[in-house]
Simulated scan of single mutants.
Amino acid sequence: MKTTTILIGLVAPQALAYPGMGRTLAQIQSHRDNTIVKRSTELLGDLKTTKDQDLTPAGSSIKSVLGGGSAIADGSTYKPLGDLASDTCKKSTLCVWYHIVQDLKVAFTDSTGCTDLARGAIRQGFHDAAAWDKDSSHGGADGSLLLSDEMSRVDNLGLEDIAAQTKGWYSQYKAYGISMADLIQTAAMTATVSCPGGPRIKHFVGRKDDSRAAPTGKLPFPYQDADALVRLFAAKTFTSNDLVALVGAHTASKQKFVDTSRKNAPQDSTPNVWDTKFYSETIAGDNKTILIFHSDKSISSYSGTQAQFKSFAGSNGKSLWSPAYAQAYFRMSFLGVNNLNNLTDISQVIPLSQ
């Protein structure tokens, strides 16, 4: 990518030097754009060894998205079979989760857009799932963030409010057979779409809980350089372009501990809305209006991620970012999950995009 950028810079002033130069430049740009949109297609969990003829409908759907298909859920919605306490509803995974999501939605939405609890739920989903890489024997989206002592780690400072709320929801609904792992990821998906403009991401449940604390040293820090972050995420099966898509979740972020003198400073000027201002404002670099993490600034200017970052900051950025984020977070929600072929699709209960 860096070589292509340099080449464009060298030949652009001579665009009319010979017939066909414009076509050559277009081909170079097309190659560059294809590089930009490249996503990970690496399989996860049991799907790595399950033969196609043995795939369930859920397993087939998950495999398709992991392989590069769209992770945006369609507009179909679920109509509840009855009250949560009814025998009919108790027998339906969709019905149980429909009622749970209604509670989540209320907590995640107000008149301005998405709430602080929604922001926390998005980050909480990351922190449970991303404490895993391909060398890990356990960890990932397994609920351990709230089932072990992981909350005492410095990585998880600022998650106290959403952690307490999520534990309360779990106590309320665990009798219906849900897992903490599923609740954490369902909350993240619901919170994302509760921010106006957030994508409605395909979602499955059936993850197994694990009370063992996840391995340490697997989560990113806001002080890291881009090259270190690219390596960190590659070990989790993400490409550098996936990384750029994922950090865009900072559009709905308010920091508390990176700079304690500016507690609750947002990372873009519209933290209640899911948009691409994070990208353009990080590039602009006005660290007085918003708080820019060193890691984000580094990613915005690093040779391996700069072009992707700029593409999301551009005039067509939202249409590029939404599907890229959806696919990358879909993958994130399955890190460390080894029973993907036995999950249940509950995408229909996730609220429609605002």
Rank of each mutant, 00 (worst) to 15 (best):
L43A: 03
P80W: 11
R207N: 10
S315I: 12
K202S: 10
L243Y: 05
L146P: 13
L340P: 13
T344P: 05
R32T: 15
Q124I: 05
T270F: 12
S301M: 14
I28T: 11
A129N: 05
G67C: 04
D268S: 12
S261I: 03
S179A: 03
G197W: 04
L291S: 08
T41G: 05
I122F: 05
T289Q: 07
P323Q: 08
V244C: 02
T56A: 06
Q165F: 15
I36A: 02
L81M: 08
T305N: 09
L104R: 15
S76F: 01
A249L: 06
F293W: 10
R212V: 07
Q348A: 10
K63R: 15
Q308P: 04
Q267C: 11
K38D: 11
S76T: 10
S152N: 11
Y18E: 13
H127W: 04
D74P: 02
G125A: 09
L147D: 11
A245P: 01
S171T: 15
K105Q: 07
K48C: 06
A265L: 01
A175M: 05
V154G: 10
Y279E: 00
H250P: 00
C114P: 13
N34A: 07
S137A: 09
D161M: 15
L66Y: 01
D259Q: 14
S253T: 07
T56V: 04
S148F: 11
H294K: 13
F108D: 00
T251V: 09
P220C: 07
F334Q: 07
S240W: 01
T3I: 03
H294Q: 10
